[in-house]
């Protein structure tokens, strides 16, 4: 593995492909949910370390919300919550 920089999924642009490195709730303050609850909800929708992600679509205003391909499902969420998902870019194929 190369040492590509890590970014928050909430900062990624359409077309971004990568892999989840960690869930870090401290990066997504003020989501309206306690951090433990936010983490569980992200996990329940399949955002687990090691899963592949791809940013497929974004909304018109503020490029928000975003549609993320995670493994084999597509999940819509807001960038505010996606800030908690730490990813690294993968350029394979």
């Amino acid at each position: 593995m190369t040492n590509l920089p890590t970014i928050a999924l909430g900062d990624a642009r359409v077309g971004f492909r990568g892999r989840i490195l960690a869930l870090d709730m401290s990066r997504a303050p003020g989501t309206g949910l306690p951090s433990e609850e936010l983490e569980r909800r992200l996990l329940e929708l399949g955002f687990v370390e090691g899963a592949t992600v791809e940013l497929l679509h974004q909304g018109l205003f503020g490029a928000d919300p975003i549609a993320i391909r995670v493994a084999a499902s597509t999940i819509a969420l807001r960038r505010r919550e996606a800030m908690a998902i730490v990813v690294t870019e993968e350029t394979s194929s």
Partner: peptide, 12 residues
């Protein structure tokens, strides 16, 4: 104070 439910849903 409650920002409300985050928007999170699966798009089948």
């Amino acid at each position: 104070g409650s920002i409300g439910e985050p928007f999170m849903l699966e798009m089948p």
